[in-house]
């Protein structure tokens, strides 16, 4: 089976070909073959396969690739909406491990439930 595809036309990935130097790092780190290389410049080949992990943007030396990176996790969105201390990723406190025990180390972040 090929790649699974999520919702269409939602992804925030952008590529500025003017800034692209053609190093190809974005193609290397992308886990879903979203990008391709044509004539020494990267291009977006399969936009709807993008999961907005942000690896391409992070590894682009010229900031040619941009994306509103995040983790596509419903539990994290709910936590953020409820104002719980777990906004950035799929981080849900596991009651077993953390309730009352104060084991959240130095308040850095909460462990993810769902990754």
């Amino acid at each position: 089976m090929g790649n699974l595809i999520y919702l269409k036309d939602v992804v925030t990935l952008e590529l500025d070909q003017e800034k692209c130097v053609g190093c190809g790092m974005c193609l290397v780190v992308c886990p879903h073959e979203v990008l391709s290389m044509n004539n020494g410049h990267a291009g977006i080949k399969n936009r709807d396969l993008c999961m907005e992990c942000g690896a391409c943007a992070r590894n682009c030396p010229t900031e040619a690739v941009t994306v509103q990176a995040g983790v596509g996790c419903a539990a994290a969105v709910i936590n953020a909406a409820l104002g719980r201390n777990a906004s950035s990723c799929c981080c849900v406190l596991e009651p077993d491990d953390d309730a009352g025990s104060g084991s959240i180390k130095s308040g850095v972040f909460n462990p993810p439930k769902c990754c």
Partner: peptide, 24 residues
């Protein structure tokens, strides 16, 4: 099923937010 988006390897945050807007 919606909660399984967090465990999946291909869902984008933009997509999850769009889905949740009507699903929740």
């Amino acid at each position: 099923a919606m909660n399984f988006t967090g465990a999946s390897t291909y869902t984008s945050l933009s997509g999850v937010k769009k889905e949740m807007k009507w699903a929740v």
